[in-house]
């Protein structure tokens, strides 16, 4: 994969402080809460954000998800990158300095 050497792969993301991310039993889903709003996440999104804990690199997340869903890292990688880009654009996550 062209992206595998991309510097983004070594980024570590964490949930931005405005947001509260957790499992919500009543919705059977992960949710992201912020002032006056709630986002309900699907399973994959929830699994990716769970791993945005400031410790895992993007590369770690790709490998963990590829094991979790029994898919090749090459299949998972662009999807994880794309989702993290969306999350970053929405301000849900921030890179660790």
């Amino acid at each position: 994969m062209a992206d595998s050497n991309n510097h983004n792969s070594m980024y570590r993301f964490s949930i931005a402080p405005v947001f509260m991310f957790r499992w919500e039993e009543s919705q059977q889903a992960h949710v992201l809460m912020y002032p006056e709003g709630i986002v309900k996440l699907n399973t994959t999104a929830g699994e990716i954000l769970t791993r945005c804990n400031g410790t895992n690199t993007v590369d770690d997340i790709v490998h963990q998800l590829s094991e979790l869903f029994s898919e090749q890292p090459e299949f998972i990688e662009p999807r994880v990158h794309q989702f993290l880009e969306v999350c970053h654009g929405k301000g849900w996550i921030q890179p660790q300095s």
Partner: peptide, 8 residues
Amino acid sequence: KAGSNLNL
């Protein structure tokens, strides 16, 4: 509220 744009 305008902020609650998601139809949860």
